[in-house]
Write a protein that binds this DNA or RNA. Structure first.
Lengths: 259, 259
DNA sequence: CGCTAGGTTGAATACGCTCAAAGATCGTGG
DNA sequence: CCACGATCTTTGAGCGTATTCAACCTAGCG
């Protein structure tokens, strides 16, 4: 019986959100159980499906278990801005708990599987398992840092810098959940998605990708991105790892959030 | 004695953060006391002062009591992106609790006064006064909505749309704390700040302001912005009020965040 | 085979940038 | 009190990055 529990526990450790938080604060078995029990109802989606629609009301938080998605918003005339690229282990709807209505839409970029749990349960978690509360707070802070860096890209970086920076960000985020190699990763996005994420036109994304290619920095084949010159790419991007907060987490993280 | 308490209570209701949250969920006297007691040590700053410096470590959360500030980040070559415009009642450092080090700098745009409290106290508040916890969660969600809308501006709106949208956002935010009239408000920012916020050059901000002026939409005199044609400006901006979440808050806000 | 979605390339254009110089405003010190 | 410097705004001219429009190419799929 105990062995079964250990087995289940180990199995759960491979789910991306748990893996992410485990990498951060070395989850205890009961904590893994809690997270695993929290979000059980799995759901599958196809590419192009709308997980969340602007204006609709939602009471549950979604966790991406596998696959990629985007959160975006449309302007009246059809212009689209991609706000977040959602990877396995990411959560959607942390804020719907307070906003009555979704402010953005979420769409699957690939076949996708999700689990979900009621937003209300969050408060109980903060109360009973403060370390997990802390980890989720870390998640939220990190997401804001990513969003800020996104704003910097779109506001103040050139096209080539934007793409280089995005690729490095995605590489690091994927590495945290063991979904990327040292210098290679899946990149299941069209250039239209890249364009709408980085505030560029499709055509210019195409041209800029060629620049990156011809500079010997990256290579794309079949939805796979290979970074041929990591240092060179970091240089072009002006990439600073720190904002992702994924290395050498301070111990105070946990202690600070205990009341 | 009771009268003194009532007096103090009423006085505190004029502090911007309390006013903001009061407008939202009708704070009870003990809740006002809690918020007032939380943040007492006041501090004054001059225009140009650095409240927060990138890379430094902070354990306290700042509340802007009066004056304007900006949060920004610099690139290696000096390019600057303004991430947030901070108004009275805004909090700085909700995330420093988990990040070991500040990711952005904060600078006073005007003479400024702040109060502060230890980040740790937050957890106690969530526990003891869940309605305040809910209100602070609302604050965080709203800030992310503002940041998202900022990203949309910079990524997908034209220069004139960006400025129009920004002015309307600031107007609504100021109205919530009784610092703006129906169509007029203080705007103590230089065009350099507007440029770095909206991802434009100073020169182009100047030209775009002229457009807005010549279209009869706004008028600026002496750090005061008057919106001459509110409907017209909203039209240019494609402005949708909802993302600010400041009208008709759902009751579920509070109930949802209770555990 | 033909359709659709996605990617690439060229040509012309535009929006916004840089550079430069000239006003305007304000605080400060002579 | 005026002059000076500093900061901010405005305007012009030329340029450049990125856009739009359009055509063509490729791959996958029914």
């Amino acid at each position: 019986m105990d062995e079964l529990r250990m087995f289940l526990n180990d199995r759960d450790r491979h789910r991306p959100l748990i893996r992410k938080l485990d990498a951060l604060i070395d989850l205890e078995p009961p904590e893994v159980d809690c997270l695993a029990g929290l979000a059980q109802t799995e759901q599958s989606w196809s590419r192009g499906d709308a997980l969340i629609e602007t204006g609709q009301s939602y009471d549950e938080i979604l966790i991406i278990e596998a696959g990629w998605a985007i959160a975006y918003k449309l302007l009246a005339d059809g212009r689209r801005q991609v706000l977040r690229i959602l990877l396995p282990g990411d959560m959607v709807g942390l804020h719907f708990a307070v906003a009555d209505v979704a402010q953005a839409s979420v769409e699957a970029l690939t076949p996708l599987s999700t689990s979900r749990f009621p937003a209300q349960n969050l408060m109980g978690i903060y109360h009973n398992l403060p370390r997990i509360g802390a980890a989720i707070a870390w998640t939220a802070a990190r997401e804001e840092a990513i969003l800020s860096e996104h704003l910097i890209s779109v506001g103040r970086r050139t096209a080539i810098e934007r793409l280089a920076h995005l690729f490095l960000e995605l590489l690091r985020r994927l590495q945290l959940i063991d979904l990327a190699g040292q210098r290679t990763m899946a990149l299941p996005v069209t250039q239209a998605v890249l364009a709408d994420a980085m505030g560029l036109s499709i055509v210019h994304v195409s041209r800029t990708m060629r620049q990156l290619r011809q500079a010997g920095l990256v290579r794309m084949t079949d939805q796979q991105l290979e970074i041929q010159d990591l240092a060179g790419l970091q240089d072009v991007a002006g990439f600073e790892e720190e904002f992702l907060m994924q290395d050498g987490l301070p111990d105070k993280l946990v202690s600070r959030l205990r009341y």
